[in-house]
């Protein structure tokens, strides 16, 4: 039987992969996907803790996290589309207009 620690380690690994993706990749869509990986790692932690504590609160929080993730994906992708129309590029390095 895997312990709570195993689930937490797996979740930490997934979160780290997501973080590395945000920093390493130079594609706006892949960066958004990496954010989704991070959100899912956190979801796994919520469910594992909810299971360990014998409460349903963790699963309810996961429901809310998924809602926020959906809203984030919709707005983020709309911004990506608008940016792509503007510069014909998905590289975040092309969007430095606000840099000093």
């Amino acid at each position: 039987m895997p312990t709570l620690n195993d689930y937490l380690v797996l979740s930490a690994i997934l979160f780290t992969i997501g973080t590395a993706g945000v920093f390493v990749r130079r594609n706006l869509i892949t960066i958004l996907l990496s954010i989704e990986i991070m959100l899912n790692a956190v979801n796994l932690t919520f469910v594992a803790f909810g299971r360990a504590l014998g409460s349903a609160d963790g699963q309810v929080i996961v429901f809310f996290v998924m809602t926020v993730a959906a809203a984030e994906a919709a707005v983020g992708l709309a911004i990506v589309i608008a940016l792509f129309r503007h510069k014909e590029s998905l590289n975040p390095d092309s969007f430095t207009g606000l840099k000093w």
Partner: peptide, 30 residues
């Protein structure tokens, strides 16, 4: 959670991503 993970995440959010990837005709990244 397992069911809404598949229905909402894999079924809805990821399809939204797929739509955008196809819509933008993803250029070669770098």
């Amino acid at each position: 959670v397992a069911v809404i993970q598949i229905i909402v995440y894999a079924g809805a959010i990821m399809v939204l991503f797929l739509f955008v990837v196809m819509l933008l005709n993803a250029p070669k990244e770098d």
